[in-house]
Nucleic acid binder design. Structure first.
Length: 208
DNA sequence: TTATAGATTGCCT
DNA sequence: GGCAATCTATAAT
């Protein structure tokens, strides 16, 4: 990973359909004292506003989804299925809803800490097959980075002070694939899932 | 007040 | 491939 710098807030101050593919190849960093955990974004989904029935913002602003209507570049973390957290980054100017769901990361740093956080004791860090278990899925990556609603919801991800940030190290994916979103029933036809073509850390499919 | 579905994962057969 | 885990928001009594 070369010199990496924080993304600008303006990066997120636009339509999630523009932010989504642009986020592929960027790096999510969790700072914890001197330790850092980091992963390259390889899979995301865009969630829109009132026109997108699958989006939490579709029913209007509530206490839960307030971050979506706030300024861009902030973490929207929600709890799902009584088990998992999911990490989104707010998009669009303040007052307008929209976000991008981070669905999978390619581990870059802090893999041992990730494995511990995931409860994967005997993980072989030299095995790509094993590394997939760390962050290949929205619930998994939150567990690996210890992202929770209480701790991280509303956190500014483009602030130098934040312990949860998005960085750009200049990497650009060779090819981006666009598909339908996964795991939803409403507004399911829209092509709003973006993945780095051929990347093995994309969630789902590949047997683990 | 009670019921149900949900932007998931891992263990079971 | 099926399904339980188990919290939250929203719909239905």
């Amino acid at each position: 990973m070369q010199l990496a710098r924080l993304l600008r807030r303006s990066f997120f101050n636009r339509d999630p359909r523009a932010v989504g593919p642009a986020l592929l190849g960027k790096i999510v960093v969790r700072r914890q004292g001197r330790k850092i955990r980091a992963g390259r974004i390889v899979e995301v989904e865009a969630y829109l506003g009132a026109d997108d029935l699958a989006a939490h913002a579709a029913a209007g602003r509530t206490e839960r989804n307030a971050v979506l209507f706030g300024p861009p570049g902030h973490a929207y973390v929600y709890f799902i299925y009584g088990v998992h957290y999911c990490l989104n980054i707010s998009c669009m100017p303040k007052g307008e809803a929209g976000c991008v769901l981070i669905r999978a990361l390619e581990p870059v740093a802090g893999m041992e800490e990730m494995a511990t956080a995931r409860g994967l004791i005997s993980l072989n860090l030299d095995s790509a097959r094993d590394l997939r278990k760390l962050t290949s899925g929205p619930g998994r990556l939150c567990e690996a980075l210890e992202i929770t609603r209480l701790r991280d919801n509303g956190k500014d991800m483009v602030s130098p002070e934040s312990d949860l940030q998005v960085l750009d190290d200049g990497f650009h994916p060779a090819k981006v694939l666009v598909t339908r979103r996964i795991g939803i029933s409403k507004s399911a036809a829209m092509p709003l899932r973006y993945v780095i073509a051929g990347n093995e850390f994309v969630s789902g499919k590949t047997a683990i």
